[in-house]
Design a protein around this nucleic acid. Structure first.
Lengths: 200, 200
DNA sequence: TTAAAAACCGACCGATCATTCGGTTGGGGA
DNA sequence: TCCCCAACCGAATGATCGGTCGGTTTTTAA
């Protein structure tokens, strides 16, 4: 592995586990074995290093989902949404550091002043929401899903699934045992009809 | 307001909006008008200041919920759960800084080495989950709610509602328009029956 | 073989950090 | 009246921060 990639890998780990501000360049230098000057030879400053990491996170996560959709065959829209949820939960485990980075606050703070950062974050979230939304739209067409607004329902599903993923991160609860209940809750959201009559 | 309280108030705002590590004691000194030494006269160090803030956050949030439950009359368990969700969403707006603090990563990192911090976080989350769970249990008894595991369902509801609250925080989406869909999704989770048959 | 370019090194820099400390102030009991 | 103690001040401190720079090694291409 090139020194540049070693720096990227170690920084991803340190930034996600300990935080951006909490990780010093000297710590990164020790971890990778690269001298201080070498890091700044490859990346113009600490923020630039973070942007490069975030770009990789974006590319990884989105390509993983594209592969999953491409390789899978779904019986119907509901089946596709369920598969997406399961895949999302598995992916947060496999790419733990990358999702942890997205769950931190620093990226969103940097996004306020760095438009590249903001566009990467928007790409990731829009891409993820699209995955859910496309399944819902497909399900509405084939009758396996009922939803008044596909985008809103996608956001709610995403909020719940991502929220469960977070519960693990926080080390306060073990969310693994929630899987069965999570799946049936998602099914309930997507199949129970006559919402309009109940509202107000 | 005493200087001590002024420091607590300003630190709550700065820690929640900018982060713990990102907020310097000199910035806090300028904001409050208190000299550097004064801050360390009232709090033994920066971490101790944070712990004091977190204690206030815990007390505030839990007492708000206790008041809400005490003052309200519910028609049934489902009504109580719905009311809890609405109250939670309103409270995240009113106590924006305090919830923002809980949504950051630093408290959970500090909790790994500081047992006081950890116990405060556990108190808050257990208390919040209790609010949801008690409504669900009540609903199961009076027949307005169907749930196999009250605690798991409470966690799922919480994950979704808190996830929606987060969407606002991240400035990526305006989640206000999600309210109607969120409420009907929660109703679906709580009322659609025969989950057992569908699973597997 | 050689020369230019890219990668790499570590000492060094000024700025900023959390925290300390000796001294001042002001209000309440003796 | 005096005294004491908590509240308060701000200059000073050593450590650490992100980033620079001049020089060396390695790689590349001609």
């Amino acid at each position: 592995m090139s020194k540049r990639n070693a720096i990227l890998a170690a920084a991803t780990r340190l930034f996600s586990r300990n935080g951006f501000k909490e990780t010093s360049m000297s710590e990164l230098s020790k971890t990778t074995g690269a001298a201080g000057g070498t890091i700044f030879h490859h990346f113009k400053n600490k923020e630039d290093l973070f942007i490069n990491i975030l770009e990789n996170v974006k590319l990884n996560i989105l390509s993983e989902f594209e592969n999953h959709i491409k390789k899978s065959k779904f019986n119907n829209g509901m089946d596709r949404v369920e598969s997406t949820i399961t895949f999302y939960l598995n992916l947060t485990g496999e790419l733990e550091d990358q999702f942890l980075l997205l769950h931190r606050h620093y990226p969103y703070q940097m996004a306020e002043t760095n438009s590249t950062c903001r566009s990467y974050l928007e790409s990731v979230y829009n891409g993820l929401l699209d995955m859910f939304e496309e399944g819902i739209i497909e399900g509405v067409k084939d009758g396996t899903v009922q939803s008044s607004s596909a985008r809103n329902t996608a956001m709610l599903l995403f909020a719940m699934v991502d929220g469960v993923a977070r519960l693990n991160t926080y080390n306060l609860y073990h969310a693994g045992s929630l899987y069965q209940d999570l799946m049936s809750s998602c099914r309930n959201i997507l199949t129970c009809g006559s919402q309009k009559e109940v509202i107000q």
